[in-house]
Design a binder for these strands. Structure first.
Lengths: 343, 343
DNA sequence: GTGAAAGCGCTAACAC
DNA sequence: GTGTTAGCGCTTTCAC
């Protein structure tokens, strides 16, 4: 076999990475042929392809996608921005996204806002700077600057976890207000009249509350008690909140929580205090997390799927990337009440 | 018609993004000056800087970090590979990583292996192809190919969640075997003699089990029962597993779980069956997750911090990026037994 | 089927 | 302080 002057030496040198040029030289072809072997192997003769492939393997060549992205204007990177990855609902969405995207060689860049719109804007700018092929946002409420940057960048965007009449581009979610209303209707239907809502004040939590309140008021029941807890709350907040509620509003007969984790915290507190659920007080959660059916009593909740949101989002993005027209840019995944023992 | 420069300001043109050149032309300077305004503003005269900055803002210029990364060989991207983002322990690590890294303008690329070493290898190659500045791995067990690729790439690597004498590069974790041993010692010390372990068969779960077994055998107690459950298990698996254990091994007086989630599942099952914990059977978890102190009875567990692992990992990486020498490439975060009601 | 030329948008030297 | 000259490693277009 003949090779041009010492081109090998690629062994374990952190000095310079192996390039297409190196492989091309070793294989005695031009670098464009190496490129074809990797991207469009069917356009290369079998013999050439085999030889090039063997050199790629032996030299440990890994294409520089940075250079590729710069030249092709496609990075094959999608960015996802969530309030926090610690909350299992968002973690599930991210899991679904990452799973689906990686099937097609796309990678996921992750950003956390801590529920701050400013942080979101900063992340959007950073991700646009990295020329991501698509961007996934949580919620539908964003700063004017975010919208403007996204518009200017002209990349596919998917908003998630909510619904709106004015999406930036695409949307995968469900109607939080309607879901809250459905829960309100359900609780009223079960005979509860003195309701309360415990949740954080993010836009979706607020929508769930107002939906529930609208339903309750429509039925002529009294205005629900609204207990606000910090954003990104967990079990502990649920325990504490139900504690204050029981103390300050002993007449309340049913509580709707903005998610299952805080509802579960409340359920655990009720067990500890030997308060009978739902006889003394009914509890209802949101999201149907893994925890919901497992606590005692099992939680009535609103079924939605964070994982499905991730999968659908990925599919819509991939369709766009593949040049397909997305006929339905808004995907309403809906919700349903799951009745269990806690109500 | 010839290709025309396109100097106009970016109103909402998806055609071509604003470049340094565009800004430079508008401001009447060379593009390198724009570059300086962004990267080393102190090297530009205040007047020039102000003028350039105003054009950057008005034109909505966002630097192309792809091009910058190609030229500078620094992408300011770190990749993290975890078994699954759905498990809160890993989510916490990722949260810590992302928080700390973003403070310095670094972004996080996320990959999930589903506990497969092959997937890990594929991800490592993909991330190296994207020329990430650093790579974070979960665990210390990797394919030969992973190690070799990482060696050749010569980038900073941090292995996490475990300890080893032969790290690839840096390490932030704790000794799973010793932690398991400590729990074994503790349970023996409390008078339990017929122990069991319930957990998944990932390397760290296995280490926790063998550690616990070693301790138990050293004390002359009998070989612990070992119940294996699927990787990535949640509450449900804990319930099911404790069910089979109670049926098949009614003599067992204490169970050590490979994490708090499955332990909590078991605790919930015990509540439901009205089995008294710890009188009839003692339960101990691992990781001191948020759930551990909240279930009834509160879980004895091994305290470690996934979030801290993320923070320390990010700090070591950043130190390396900033050219500092990391004196302690191995960071043992330790562990401690937290005694609660369940034992 | 294969190759040459021309960038992609930026930073790293080195000049002025 | 500011500009000039070279690339970074790849894909694209068009030629053969």
């Amino acid at each position: 076999m003949k090779r041009k002057p010492n081109t090998e030496t690629a062994a374990a040198a952190p000095a310079r990475a192996v390039t297409k040029e190196d492989v091309a030289r070793a294989a005695g072809v031009s670098h464009i042929t190496v490129s074809r072997v990797i991207n469009t192997p069917e356009k290369v003769s079998p013999e050439t392809r085999a030889r090039v492939e063997s050199f790629i393997a032996s030299m440990g060549y890994i294409p520089n996608m940075l250079a590729g992205g710069l030249a092709s204007r496609r990075t094959r990177i999608v960015a996802a921005i969530v309030p926090t990855i610690s909350h299992s609902i968002f973690a599930e969405t991210v899991r679904g996204l990452s799973e689906k995207l990686s099937e097609q060689g796309y990678q996921l860049l992750l950003g956390q806002t801590n529920y701050s719109e400013m942080e979101e804007t900063a992340l959007v700018e950073a991700f646009i700077g990295r020329r991501v092929d698509g961007l996934v946002l949580t919620g539908v409420q964003h700063t004017a600057r975010t919208r403007q940057r996204l518009k200017a960048a002209g990349i596919p965007v998917v908003e998630t976890w909510d619904l709106t009449d004015t999406p930036i581009d695409m949307l995968v979610g469900f109607d939080n207000h309607a879901a809250g209303r459905a829960m309100g209707d359900y609780l009223i239907g079960k005979g509860y009249r003195r309701l309360a809502f415990i949740g954080g004040e993010d836009p979706r939590g607020i929508a769930r509350f107002t939906g529930m309140r609208d339903a309750v008021l429509a039925h002529g029941a009294r205005e629900p008690v609204h207990i606000k807890i910090p954003l990104g709350s967990f079990l502990r907040s649920g325990r504490d909140a139900i504690g204050s509620l029981l103390r300050d509003h002993p007449e309340v007969d049913a509580v709707f929580f903005s998610n299952d984790v805080i509802a579960a915290g409340a359920a655990l507190e009720c067990i500890r205090r030997e308060i009978r659920v739902p006889e003394q007080i009914a509890l209802a959660g949101f999201a149907n997390l893994e925890l919901a059916p497992e606590v005692t009593p099992a939680l009535t909740t609103v079924q939605i799927s964070g994982h499905q949101i991730g999968l659908n989002t990925a599919e819509m993005l991939l369709a766009r990337f593949n040049g397909q027209h997305v006929a339905q840019p808004v995907c309403d995944l809906g919700y349903s009440i799951i009745e269990r023992e806690s109500t």
